[in-house]
Amino acid sequence: MMYPYITLADETEITHSQPIEENGQKCVEVHFERATEDGFLSARCLLPSYQWKFNDGFSQQEIAFFNEFLKSNAHLLYRYAEQGGVHCA
Rank of each mutant, 00 (worst) to 15 (best):
Glu82Ile: 01
Lys71His: 11
Asn23Glu: 08
Phe32Tyr: 05
Gln18Leu: 09
Tyr3Asp: 13
Leu77Ile: 03
Ala35Arg: 11
Tyr5Asp: 09
Gln51Leu: 15
Gln51Met: 13
Glu13Gln: 12
Phe58Arg: 01
Lys71Val: 11
Glu11His: 03
Glu22Gly: 08
Pro19Lys: 07
Tyr3Arg: 07
Tyr50Asp: 12
Gln60Ile: 07
Gly84Gln: 15
Leu41His: 01
Gln18Asn: 15
Asn73Pro: 01
His75Trp: 01
Phe32Ala: 03
Glu37Lys: 11
Val28Gly: 04
Glu13Trp: 00
Phe32Glu: 06
Ser49Lys: 05
Phe40Ile: 07
Glu22Asn: 14
Ala89His: 04
Gln60Ala: 10
Gln18Cys: 07
Cys88Val: 14
Phe69Asn: 08
Trp52His: 09
Ile14Asp: 05
Ser42Gln: 00
Asn67Pro: 06
Phe40Pro: 00
Ser17Asn: 09
Ser72Leu: 09
Asn23Val: 08
Lys26Arg: 14
Leu76Ile: 05
Ala74Leu: 00
Asn73Glu: 13
Ile6Cys: 09
Ser72Ile: 09
Glu37Val: 11
Asn73Leu: 05
His87Ser: 11
Ile14Leu: 00
Gln60Ser: 12
Gln51Glu: 15
Gly24Val: 08
Pro48Ile: 10
Gly84Cys: 15
Glu22Lys: 15
Asp56Met: 00
Phe32Pro: 06
Ala81Thr: 15
Thr36Gly: 15
Tyr80Pro: 00
Tyr80Met: 04
Phe58His: 02
Glu33Asn: 01
Phe40Tyr: 13
Ser42Pro: 00
Phe54Ile: 00
Ile20Thr: 09
Asn55Ile: 03
Tyr5Ser: 06
Phe58Ser: 04
Gly84Asp: 15
Ile20Pro: 13
Lys53Ile: 15
Glu13Lys: 08
Ser59His: 06
Lys53Gly: 08
Ile63Gly: 04
Leu41Asp: 04
Val30His: 03
Met1Ser: 13
His87Lys: 10
Asn23Arg: 10
Ser59Pro: 09
Cys27Lys: 08
Ala89Asn: 04
Gln51Phe: 13
Pro4Cys: 07
Phe40Asn: 12
Val30Asn: 01
Ala74Glu: 10
His87Cys: 02
Phe69Ser: 06
Ala89Glu: 03
Cys45Trp: 01
Glu68Arg: 06
Tyr3Asn: 11
Asn23Gly: 06
Gln18Arg: 14
Val28His: 11
His31Gly: 10
Phe66Leu: 13
Pro48Thr: 08
Ala35Ile: 01
Tyr3Trp: 08
Gly39Ile: 06
Leu76Gly: 02
Glu33Ser: 03
Thr12Pro: 09
Glu82Leu: 06
